[in-house]
């Protein structure tokens, strides 16, 4: 952490070499979030680059109160929301995305190595279905869901990042979840896919893990 702090301080004094190291340290995190938000690599790259450029220019306002990565994420999500708002919430779907055909979905994803192939396929299909549903949500709902579920930020952190009250974050998150669930159900129905909950009605045990949503590394 000290090393990072040192790099930040040097960058604040316009040391570009130090800043480049910061970029290398944090590019993964910034890019990941950019990709989750934009849903394609072209926009993700654009967004992520812009984030670092703005970060560099605003470095003097970084007071070491927050984690640097969180600070960058804050820039990322706000930049994205702004762009989206200005664009009238039109989502540009790039051809970089999975392509939907009548035969189902063709994704560019490379299959994971191990596991039951059939189950894996199902899981993959479901995941891409959820991903699609997520993309159809309004930007602000999508942002909170991604920050919470994908990036694992706490309500508090999200509230600070988006300059919202805790209550607003919670209610927005709940609305987003409701909307997502609804969308997922519709898409699943269209695709003739059963949701896992549907299966459980036919005797399949539901195993609940304590605090299933709580812990995750980021």
């Amino acid at each position: 952490m000290d090393a990072v702090k040192h790099l930040i301080q040097r960058s604040q004094e316009h040391d570009l070499v130090a800043f480049e190291q910061l970029v290398q340290l944090y590019q993964q995190r910034v890019y990941s979030l950019s990709y989750q938000l934009t849903g394609n690599h072209a926009d993700a790259q654009d967004l992520a680059q812009e984030v670092f450029i703005r970060a560099y220019r605003s470095l003097s306002s970084f007071r070491f109160e927050a984690d640097f990565g969180t600070w960058l994420h804050r820039i990322t999500v706000n930049l994205w929301l702004n762009t989206k708002r200005r664009r009238g919430n039109v989502t540009l779907i790039s051809l970089d995305e999975p392509i939907h055909t009548s035969d189902g979905e063709v994704t560019r994803e490379v299959a994971a190595a191990a596991g039951d192939p059939e189950e894996e396929l199902e899981e993959k299909e479901f995941r891409s279905l959820v991903g699609r549903a997520l993309k159809e949500l309004p930007g602000e709902q999508r942002a909170v869901l991604i920050l919470r579920e994908v990036e694992g930020y706490s309500y508090d952190e999200i509230a600070r990042m988006l300059d919202l009250s805790l209550g607003t974050v919670k209610s927005r998150l709940n609305r987003a979840r409701d909307a997502l669930k609804k969308r997922v159900s519709t898409l699943a129905e269209e695709a003739g896919m059963a949701l896992p909950g549907g299966k459980s009605k036919h005797g399949r045990a539901v195993v609940l893990k304590e605090g299933a949503g709580a812990s995750r590394a980021r």
Partner: peptide, 17 residues
């Protein structure tokens, strides 16, 4: 069933990550 759906969705979301 409802919660199972939710868990699956949450898991899928994290799979995205």
């Amino acid at each position: 069933g409802e919660l199972a759906d939710w868990q699956a969705i949450t898991l899928a979301l994290r799979g995205v990550s």
